[in-house]
Structure formats: structure tokens, C-alpha cells
């Protein structure tokens, strides 16, 4: 056991994990939230009912969610190469991570947005709000605490998936655990990575709860 050599490796793996999860979370929110909004407003009893679009979006989201992550990881390799020019490394892992988390977060945000009292939307309409104002001034602020909790859940799933992405050379803590902890029988490395993953997950959930509570005025 050589700590002088292993220390920097663990550090780098942690940074890689945070990088993968951070960037894929960013894209997940960027694309998943609008998708969630589209899902509720195009719904049959939504603000702009477009049943056919709703059905197509729902189908795509379900498709994305029905593929196990490990399979998705491999299945979209050509797409990954197209987007980032490589299929190896943390940068390449971001693509499948985001692709799997976007539909997940779309459903989670859809549920959060649906919880907003219909009466509030009606009140906003009665005041002469347009669709955009209802989304920006009513739907999003009113569901914000719930969206924050949904984001925490999504980040936690991404941390788990990022460890899987490590298996195909994605880097990060999962990669480290497999190469050292599993293939070289260095149990200490396995334990350290597991502890680090647990700490990350706990931290994210704790921060999520804290933020949601601070934002909620119910």
C-alpha cells in the first residue's frame, strides 16, 4: 500500500466524479426541466393541450428510462463520439450520464410541477397572465422546493451511474474502485471509494433538504 502514490489517484478520481456528475447535472437540468414543463402544459388538461406531442414526448421519456444504464452507455457510443469526439474518459461519460438522467429528471420535474395548485394557475389566468408568465412566475417558483429535492435525487442517481461509467474507462471513483479494489484486491481502496461515495450522497441529500426547507414557505 503506497499512500504517496494512491493519495493523488484518489484525489483525481474524486475530482473526475464531481466533474462528470456536475456537468451532466447541468445538462440534465437544462434539458430535463423544459421537457418536464412541456409534458405538463401539453397534457390533455394542461395550459396548451397538444395530445399528440404529449404522447410522443411521453414515449421518448419512457424509452430513455426503460434502458438499463450499462446498456445505454454502450448503445449510444457512436452518439457520444459524434458529440465529444471520444468514447473514453470522463468527458465521454458525461454524454450517457446526461442522456439517461434527462428523461428521469423530466418525469421528476413533471410530478413536481403537477403538484402546483390548479387554483393558482386559474388565478394567474384571471389576472391576464400569458403562458410564459404563468411558467416563470407561478409554476416554477411554486414548485421550486420540490424541484430542488428532485434535483438532489437526480444528482444521487448520477453519482451511482458515474461509478458504472467508470467500468468503460470513464474515470472517477468507480473506475478506481474496480481497477484497484477489485482487480488488484486492494480492499482499502474499495473501502475508501465507497466511503467517499457515501459522503458525497449524504452531502447532496443534506444540502438538498436544507435548500428545499429554506425555499419552502408553506
Amino acid at each position: 500500500m503506497n499512500w504517496a502514490q494512491l493519495g493523488p489517484q484518489i484525489w483525481k478520481a474524486s475530482v473526475d466524479t464531481i466533474y462528470m456528475v456536475g456537468v451532466s447535472t447541468f445538462f440534465t437540468l437544462l434539458l430535463g426541466l423544459p421537457l418536464g414543463i412541456l409534458l405538463i402544459i401539453t397534457d390533455r388538461d394542461g395550459l396548451v393541450p397538444i395530445p399528440w406531442l404529449n404522447a410522443i414526448l411521453g414515449f421518448i421519456v419512457n424509452l430513455g428510462r426503460s434502458l438499463p444504464f450499462v446498456i445505454l452507455l454502450i448503445a449510444i457510443l457512436p452518439f457520444t463520439r459524434l458529440l465529444v469526439g471520444t468514447t473514453i474518459g470522463s468527458k465521454a461519460a458525461i454524454v450517457p450520464l446526461a442522456v439517461s438522467a434527462i428523461p428521469f429528471f423530466a418525469r421528476i420535474s413533471e410530478t413536481s410541477l403537477r403538484e402546483v395548485d390548479k387554483g393558482l394557475i386559474e388565478a394567474a389566468q384571471a389576472m391576464g397572465c400569458n403562458l410564459w408568465q404563468i411558467i416563470i412566475k407561478v409554476l416554477l417558483p411554486e414548485s421550486l422546493p420540490s424541484l430542488v429535492l428532485g434535483t438532489a435525487i437526480t444528482i444521487i442517481s448520477l453519482i451511482g451511474y458515474s461509478a458504472m461509467a467508470g467500468t468503460i474507462g470513464g474515470g472517477g471513483l468507480g473506475d478506481l474502485a474496480i481497477r484497484y479494489g477489485y482487480q488488484r484486491f486492494q480492499t482499502e481502496v474499495m473501502i475508501i471509494t465507497v466511503v467517499l461515495l457515501i459522503v458525497m450522497v449524504q452531502l447532496v441529500q443534506w444540502l438538498g433538504n436544507l435548500l428545499a426547507r429554506a425555499l419552502s414557505h408553506r
Binding site: 387554483g119 388565478a123 407561478v138
Partner: peptide
């Protein structure tokens, strides 16, 4: 409205 319909976030 009967149930006031105030925004809880404001």
C-alpha cells in the same frame, strides 16, 4: 376565490 389562491412562494 374560495381558497384564496395566493402564491405560497411570495
Amino acid at each position: 376565490f374560495q381558497h384564496f389562491n395566493l402564491l405560497n412562494s411570495r
